[in-house]
């Protein structure tokens, strides 16, 4: 396994660390700028482009001459939803990848997104729930699946190949549950079904954004609190314990936070394919490892979702949900990662 995420762990020289920190801060700022630019683009350009002054006027509530509906009712909820969902997926995915020290161990590959998605569909189609209740069902299912996968792959190193294979099996099963539930719901509109199969931002409303924002605050905060311990865990369990880290408690907190983030995002926008998987490795490549991976991964997740959604809406011949775009980018990346790990002589 090439541990892309681990590159800086063994470079304690302080000047190197300072240089790394400076680089990471620059990277974070660039990512932030990128994100702001994308949001501005999403708000001002769609089927037609609005002058920036009109967009600002609409946002501040002033009379904007017709721009009000387009900006505040159509584009703003969509942009906000993309932003928070992307942040959640990026953070949650990278947390898993860092904790398990394996870029393949992201929630969308090991079945946690699939579990949350299947549970959300079950809650909506069969139990007729909505809003917070759906998110609650999705989060508990995500936690249940995480426990199940941990249990099934335990023994001789849970972070290994077995975890990923078990997870792939579990996701295959859960995906067929989702397909079945959707096929069985006769009045179900197909665009809505796509949300649960690949993830989509269509018809996003501000009401749906708030639960995700709250989840981002709670679970993101939990992750931030655990970030230092998580960083030390990368040195190995024994070294971390010597430094005063309670490894099992940290793992539990990080798992809870990551599952919470992913499940809330999934219950709002569906399992947007591969965002959680892609963000971590890209962040690790840009920041050269270290403790800035998590925030960078969150920003990259948001950029991926915003850009994917924009491309899916306006830059392709047909209007496609964001999950199709990120899936089409992510699958080749996964293949690339496999080839690359092979070429470096690592065993995957």
């Amino acid at each position: 396994m090439t541990l892309i995420i681990d590159t800086q762990a063994a470079a304690p020289a302080s000047h190197a660390r300072n240089r790394g920190t400076r680089r990471a801060v620059i990277v974070l700022n660039m990512l932030g700028l990128c994100l702001v630019g994308l949001i501005a683009l999403t708000l001002s350009c769609g089927q037609g482009c609005l002058p920036p002054a009109h967009v600002l006027a609409a946002l501040t509530g002033a009379d904007a001459g017709g721009a009000d509906f387009v900006v505040n009712d159509l584009r703003l909820p969509r942009a906000l939803m993309s932003l928070v969902v992307g942040l959640c997926f990026g953070l949650g995915g990278a947390a898993f990848q860092v904790m398990l020290r394996n870029p393949l161990a992201s929630p969308d590959i090991i079945g946690i997104s699939a579990g949350a998605g299947a549970a959300a569909v079950f809650a909506i189609v069969v139990l007729s729930l909505e809003g917070w209740a759906v998110s609650a069902v999705a989060v508990s299912a995500g936690l249940g699946i995480a426990t199940l996968i941990w249990g099934l792959s335990s023994g001789r190193g849970a972070a290994g190949a077995r975890l990923i294979l078990v997870g792939i099996g579990v996701s295959a099963m859960l995906n067929s549950v989702t397909s079945y539930l959707l096929l069985d719901a006769p009045a179900w509109d197909r665009a809505e079904a796509m949300r649960w199969l690949t993830g989509s931002m269509n018809g996003a409303q501000l009401v749906q954004v708030w639960p995700v924002v709250a989840a981002l605050a709670v679970f993101g905060g939990l992750l931030a609190v655990s970030a230092r311990d998580l960083d030390l865990l990368r040195l190995g369990d024994d070294a971390a314990r010597a430094l005063g880290v309670r490894s099992d408690a940290t793992r539990f907190r990080v798992t809870l936070a990551a599952v919470g983030l992913v499940a809330f995002a999934t219950s709002a926008a569906g399992p947007v394919a591969f965002v959680a998987f892609l963000s971590g490795p890209i962040a690790a490549r840009l920041t050269r490892g270290g403790r800035f991976i998590l925030p960078a991964a969150g920003l990259i997740g948001a950029i991926l979702v915003l850009a994917g959604d924009y491309a899916g809406q306006f830059m392709l011949p047909a209007r496609l949900p964001v999950g199709v775009v990120t899936g089409a980018i992510g699958a080749p990346f996964l293949l690339l990662l496999i080839v690359k790990a092979n070429r470096n002589g690592g065993t995957l």
């Binding site: 394919a273 496609l320 089409a328 992510g330 293949l335």
Partner: peptide, 11 residues
Amino acid sequence: ATSIAASAFVV
């Protein structure tokens, strides 16, 4: 990965 890519294209 191939399955996911193929099904993304199918969608």
